[in-house]
Design a protein around this nucleic acid. Structure first.
Lengths: 189, 189
DNA sequence: CCAAAAGTGTTGCCGGTACACCCATGG
DNA sequence: CCATGGGTGTACCGGCAACACTTTTGG
């Protein structure tokens, strides 16, 4: 996940999720896209509203959270010497500013559920990839090992990915078939 | 669903979902409970955040929607001569103020999904009820007829309801067993 | 020839769906 | 005795999980 190191009070010196204020005449989705592009340079990825939290005592009344899925390889972080945005592992990070852990936990749960009945992983993989790479993503998110044969049968059977015909030679072993997503947009299966 | 007839501009004379402003030092959940109690007199029912919408041009920046499930028989509507709150069928109602239809549609979809994997119906039924009554609720929400034997096997098999031992004699037919929910609070199955 | 990852089928189980008749009561 | 809704069991099917060996390549 992407965190910034707070340079200003409150919570100066602690890690927090990136955020910002809604501008005049800007929709929530637009604000979320804008912040995402500002911080990572990417657009056209999976991005959806997560939940709205109270923000007693903050500048705004409420905090409307969004979560996005991005292939880190495609991002270019904003070089901010003061706030130092950086990627962190989701699991095993210390406490965050403003109790942001609950937001992370909620996003994690939502993502685990979405994996089962949507094709959202497309947003975490490059245009072409091997099924093993894809399986690693599922395993990382679900936190469990998956049977290779069952996994492959499912994803191609559901029609969310298809062979490209190209293979990838990489290392001292049999080359792997490269796959692509049939549709690179959110789909419910 | 509960609608009020707008007495003031904008959209005077049209039907709208009940709503209000967040007070100082009040949480979103508290505000939702307060509005629900104000309008219907009930509390201790299923109530959860639905989605947050933009509100370009309104008094507030955003609209945080909640939805509740209540047994209409237990409600006592606020007798407001001006705003006239009243119950309406969810399906087949004309256009609402502020494009509120999208909120209703979203709530409907969420409810249909929740029916499958939670016990939320408890909030739409009295303390004791027959399985046929319960089945009617499911059928109304899902918009399809359900097989009686499969339905009964499922709900008692999942352990969400249990027999009370009491029966209800009502009309010229065999008396029906009365059931109750094992837990009257939201549970994921 | 060895190491390393790619690729491939079959079996059993469980849950969901389809389906039809007897029971208790009031009038 | 008739009409009305209450109550019950079985059989089939499809999806999911478990499980092990062969293939292709580089060194």
């Amino acid at each position: 996940m992407l965190l910034i190191e707070r340079a200003a009070e409150p919570c100066a010196g602690t890690w927090a999720l990136p955020g910002g204020l809604l501008r005049d005449a800007e929709s929530l989705d637009e604000a979320a896209s804008r912040k995402l592009a500002d911080e990572t340079g990417v657009s056209d990825v999976f991005l959806e509203q997560l939940f709205t939290f109270d923000n007693q005592g903050g500048r705004a009344n409420v905090v409307v959270t969004y979560f996005a899925l991005v292939d880190v390889a495609r991002t270019r972080l904003r070089p901010d010497l003061e706030w130092r945005p950086a990627w962190h592992p989701v699991r095993g990070v210390g406490p965050l500013a403003f109790g942001n852990e609950r937001i992370v936990a909620y996003a994690e749960e939502r993502l685990r559920n979405k994996l089962e009945y949507t094709n959202v992983v497309y947003s975490l993989l490059p245009a072409r990839f091997t099924l093993t790479e894809m399986q690693r993503v599922y395993e990382a998110i679900l936190g469990e090992v998956i049977d290779k044969r069952n996994f492959r049968r499912r994803v191609v059977g559901l029609g969310i990915v298809r062979e490209t015909g190209e293979t990838e030679k990489l290392g001292a072993h049999r080359p792997a078939m490269l796959y692509e997503f049939t549709r690179r947009e959110p789909m419910v299966l």
